[in-house]
Design a protein around this nucleic acid. Structure first.
Lengths: 222, 222
DNA sequence: ATAATAATCTAACGATTATTAGAATATTGC
DNA sequence: GCAATATTCTAATAATCGTTAGATTATTAT
């Protein structure tokens, strides 16, 4: 076979991955799936699209082998086909944040405080959490916490936070995280906490970012 | 502003990066640019497309801020807008190799020998090259070598190799590399060397892969 | 078996994208 | 200033993609 055609074929295959990540909704689905397995219905709801549209997008992601499907009773559950797919999402988002001024501006206007973590900050947060100097809360839905979470983090879904405020110590700083830099759950949680007199802040990391930085998660014990 | 619309905008920005890497020719251009700055004409020739088409693709890459342009006399030279862009290309290609069986098969049929390097193999290659036990040759065009190359590697462009065979020691193993796993220059070089009685093999790494693995390149001294 | 549910498939539309040709622009060398 | 060169812009067409509605499939509960 002619060398040029062979090369074209190789790039074509990689471009299939590129095409899969060229749609905003598919990226959102990937980010949600990076939090753990979900049914089509749940994915559609989380991404604010119809089940039909979610299904169509999932089909593309499946064709590119970025996700896998599994039947579970009357539902079909999707999951990422590997941890490298979550890492790809983090890489894409990071490159976008680094080079697209528009995105940087949009994020600055959304989240007033700079909250990006570097290797040193992550390690020191872990230390403080271990010693109990800060309380790290995971404000995602409980199922996502169960699938994997930051070490020493407590599950405190943003929807239940108001009723469960009493569980949090008033004398220590609360550090909230959620799905990642684009997720607004932790911002909502911090607003509520501050309103009730707590010292609280959020971090940009979700579990995909934490893992991409080479740090361990606490995995489920099945 | 409504939270849903704000989120949509964020994913839209990231999808712009995705769109930029959703075309085979644009990926090929990125891979070539990962070897150093090039003019539109050179890029078009390397990627086997018309200058017009190359220009159109470069425009998309520029809009996504993955590349930058600079006028140099009567030419316009393009370069990647950062090392993270080369890393993105490596990540995409790696995810594709990992999950797309079709790509794995295509590569196996192209390159008989498994030649993938892991952290340990890379380190030991570096050691052997340092001690002179193997001769590492960079068979890319000289300009690409000049832009950055593996430590202890000699420039020996595949086009000049036949005339310069005498420069290579017959008693030591020759290790050839080129632009990366999709590039066929090193395979061509190894075939020529073996034909002339040399012990030669190639490695899959190009400078982008080497750098993405966290290892240092020898940069130009301007 | 049958009804109910979850998800996909098919078909269709309008909106993008890739590619090419021809015109236009900017720079260099004279 | 003028001709030559490198690149981009404009316009046009064919191909592909996103989205929706309606029909279909596979499973569970009765």
């Amino acid at each position: 076979m002619d060398a040029r055609k062979t090369k074209d074929l190789l790039y074509e295959h990689v471009a299939q991955i590129g095409k899969a990540v060229s749609s905003p909704k598919r990226l959102e689905l990937l980010e949600i799936l990076a939090q753990g397995e979900k049914t089509v219905e749940a994915l559609a709801a989380d991404a604010s699209v119809s089940v039909k549209l979610a299904s169509a997008h999932l089909k593309v992601l499946k064709a590119a082998r970025l996700v896998e499907a599994r039947r579970d009773g009357r539902n079909i559950a999707y999951r990422l086909s590997g941890p490298d797919v979550a890492a790809l999402w983090v890489t894409l988002r990071t490159v976008a944040e680094e080079h697209l001024v528009e995105l940087k501006l949009a994020m600055d206007s959304l989240f007033a405080a700079p909250e990006k973590l570097d290797a040193e900050t992550r390690r020191s947060l872990l230390e403080k959490a271990k010693r109990g100097e800060v309380v790290v809360i995971d404000v995602r839905p409980a199922a996502e916490y169960a699938h994997g979470h930051l070490p020493f983090a407590r599950s405190m879904p943003v929807g239940e936070l108001r009723q469960r405020l009493a569980e949090l110590p008033a004398d220590r700083e609360i550090v909230a995280y959620c799905r990642g830099p684009f997720c607004m759950m932790s911002a909502e949680a911090v607003a509520l906490l501050k309103q009730h007199g707590y010292r609280a802040r959020k971090i940009a990391d979700g579990t995909p970012e934490w893992q991409a930085a080479g740090l361990p998660l606490v995995a489920p014990t099945p």
